[in-house]
Amino acid sequence: MDNREFIEKARKKIKEGLSVDDLIRKLIAFSDSLEKGENTIFEQLNDLYFLYYPEAADKLKERDNFIAALKESCDRKSTSDKLAIPIESMGLDLDDEEIQLLSLSVNELSNLSDLRKVVNDRLNDIIKKIYPNLNAVLGSEIAARIIYLAGSSYLLMLMPSSKIQVLGAEKAMFAARKKKATPKYGVIYNHELMLSVSDKLKGKMAKVIAAYTSLAIKTDVLSKEDKSSIIMEKMLKDINRVKNGT
């Protein structure tokens, strides 16, 4: 007996089974590891730069500032001009070769950062196109992440909103099995509307957002229509109710 028939069938099934959600999952994982790599490299580079020009390195502790200030050139002269600090330094004087090495490294870091932006832009485009309702409720970044955490849009659709509310807070959820209180929010915490309310109302807010997330993903998966304006209108009404405490 030949297994050719089985292989053909299995191949077909895989082709049917793969979807854009898999792409989203991979892109998110890629973007996450890019960011992780960027941070590690930045820390090392900042350390290295600290040796050469500690006064400047002290002012450039933010990754994006560091890249912006040192991208073109790394030597003390141009940096001191840019940051308006004295050129005299207590750091170690380096040869041109080493300064060049620094420059090269900062450029590579900047490239990585650009690449991550491209990945994220692509991710946002996909979300906007395929999940317009979810995008309206959550914003593309959280929308992508919540699909990633759920596994796929279909699985997300099947989830009750109480589970959506704590997606991303699995660790706290497991702790709650033993003694602690259950978490109020997972990745939804990063939603921009959450910033606008006091800590006390954040739990209620998360509940509202999770409920509308659930509604939005059901609309996206089942009807595939863009009803985001209606959903948003209702959601804002509920949000105002939470804010006013009624």
């Binding site: 089985f6 299995a10 895989i14």
Partner: peptide
Amino acid sequence: AEEMAVNLILLAEWRKNIFPIVG
């Protein structure tokens, strides 16, 4: 899982006594 099954199918291509089923 599709991604796992891909490796399985590639294995079955040269190990003819493996009959992969995605299900």
